[in-house]
């Protein structure tokens, strides 16, 4: 039974961190921007939520506050990028670094905040209904995921959402159709970091604690989820809702992989290098496969000709 809960816990964590992956997907894939704000805004989401619940605010309102904090973080990167013309990667890094200090301020100068005394949603519902916390989290997180995928699916189908996608796909075309591409990038960065803030908040509630360093490497974990999700979906039909769902599934698979390697005795400190290698390999495989296929086709088609002539 213990093992079962370990893996159910991994699924819960995958769902919660799935919002982070969805947020990064919006900037990385739809807007074609590598946004490094997320390492900071994930921690901001956790910090804001933690301080709210510690002050007796209902967790749902605390989550909302975290989303808004994410919006603001994204807006800062967006303004640095569009108004000050700072390259997107650098703009993201600047915000991320700045957020470290701000997160510490939010947490009252403490690097770590335990939430055991506060209402942390999952735990309280579990106690009051007398159901295991892992199940409760699973159900609540699945509900959250469905609601947010539905909202994102709707939004990116609207005129505004299409304009945002067009901006990421072909900026010159978007501008020549009268779309204010700067506004679209700003909007995209805000939505993205709002989702990241949400993810950070849920993570703090679930873990009943938050740390100022919780977001370190979050971007890499999000990318791992995205590439895993894309591998799953690779052969399937192109449907946006399905793409979004596959990213959350990617996030879950990532957490299960982590649970397995930890089970096998890997040190938690080595997780980050493992994740980095995983992402690098996942991004490299399609390139190598494509090249091999091309060379073998070339040999097959050309080799015989050469033999004949020889």
């Amino acid at each position: 039974m213990g093992l079962f809960y370990t893996y159910l816990g991994a699924v819960d964590l995958g769902l919660i961190w799935g919002f982070l992956a969805l947020g990064v997907y919006i900037t990385f894939r739809l807007l074609d921007i590598a946004d490094l704000t997320v390492d900071g805004s994930f921690a901001t989401g956790g910090a804001v939520c933690a301080v709210c619940v510690l002050n007796g605010i209902h967790p749902i309102l605390a989550i909302l506050a975290s989303i808004i904090a994410g919006f603001i973080a994204g807006a800062i990167t967006g303004l640095l990028h569009t108004k000050c013309k700072i390259p997107a990667i650098l703009a993201g890094i600047l915000t991320q670094i700045g957020l470290y200090s701000i997160n510490l301020r939010i947490m009252g100068g403490r690097a770590n905040l335990p939430l055991t005394t506060a209402n942390t949603l999952f735990n309280d519902i579990a106690t009051s209904l007398n159901i295991n916390k892992y199940y409760v989290t699973f159900i609540i997180a699945i509900l959250f995921v469905m609601v947010f995928i539905a909202i994102l699916y709707w939004f990116f189908g609207t005129e505004l959402g299409s304009s945002l996608r067009a901006t990421g796909n072909s900026e010159q075309m978007a501008r020549s159709l009268g779309i204010n591409t700067d506004t679209m990038k700003l909007l995209g960065l805000m939505i993205s970091n709002g989702l990241v803030g949400l993810s950070g908040a849920l993570n703090a509630l679930y873990g009943q604690a938050t740390d100022v360093r919780v977001g370190t490497g979050a971007i890499v974990i999000a990318l791992a989820s995205i590439v895993i999700g894309e591998v799953i979906l690779s052969s399937k039909k192109n449907n946006f809702a399905l793409s979004l769902a596959s990213i959350v599934v990617g996030s879950i698979i990532y957490r299960i992989i982590v649970a397995i390697v930890l089970q096998m005795g890997l040190n938690t400190d080595d997780l980050k290098i493992l994740t980095a290698i995983l992402v690098a390999i996942a991004l490299t495989i399609p390139v190598i496969l494509g090249k091999r296929r091309q060379i073998s086709t070339y040999k097959k088609l050309t080799g015989k000709e050469i033999d004949k002539n020889a």
Binding site: F155, G157, T158, E159, L160, S162, S163, R165, A166, N169, S170, M173, A174, L177, G178, I179
Partner: peptide, 24 residues
């Protein structure tokens, strides 16, 4: 926009100079 459908491209162009809101 290469990643978008012919329909979507035309619809984007149809709204040139118009307000782009939250309708489909």
């Amino acid at each position: 926009a290469s990643e978008m459908q012919i329909l979507e491209n035309l619809a984007l162009a149809k709204r040139r100079g118009k307000h782009r809101g939250l309708s489909w």
